[in-house]
Amino acid sequence: MNLQATPDLSRPWLTGIREAIPLLGGYIPVAISFGLVTVQAGFSTWEAALISTLIYAGASQFLFVGMVAGGGPLWLVVVMTLLINVRHVVYAPNLAPWLTHHRCWPWLMHGLTDQVFALAHSRLPQLAERQRLGWFTGAALMAWASWIAGTALGAIAGEWLTARWPLLGEVMPFALPSLFLVLVVPRFTSRRWSLALCTTIATAMLCTLAGVTNLGIPLAAILGALCFYVVQFDTRNRRQG
């Protein structure tokens, strides 16, 4: 799973699958929780799995099921769920320079979650052009399949699993921050970037602690970006002064 350029990738889809394995540590426990919560909210197992298959966006799925179970108006459920997912609009354009002209790419964007984007944004530039479609397909399908399977497992045996191995459910989700850390740390390339990244991390953490996680993600990113621009402005002023 080396992040360095790997010129010899005879089966890029297999490499994609392998490199998506660290995502499972974060995906499966959360998917199991989703399956459990969904069944408890009155949905059947196959309905839970179908929601994960079709919507495939973690936090917004919890909100969807929670609002439906709470009796919220359906138009509001749809609007709120979509609002949470708005951050996804910036992902595909960031990958576009590395994508080939194959017709499948727009369809594969269904698999463009936060985690898959972070992984692809690091890896696609390092791969040869002919390897990118296979790699992305393998990685995205692996992540999607694990999310659906985890949901089904949670719906069928979630209660038993969390009672039997409570520690596993507590420890495995750390794979997600750990993976994100590995994907973000190479971006600390300059003081300007470091300040923007630290501002973003601190803001996101504070928002989460304040209970406004979903608002916190775009807000933290925008504040980080503002910081990026302001620091450049300050540096220029100092030089002129």
Partner: peptide, 12 residues
């Protein structure tokens, strides 16, 4: 904004 969104998810 793309990388910073990922950084925000890290923070969360």
């Amino acid at each position: 904004l793309g990388p910073l969104m990922i950084t925000a998810v890290l923070g969360v």
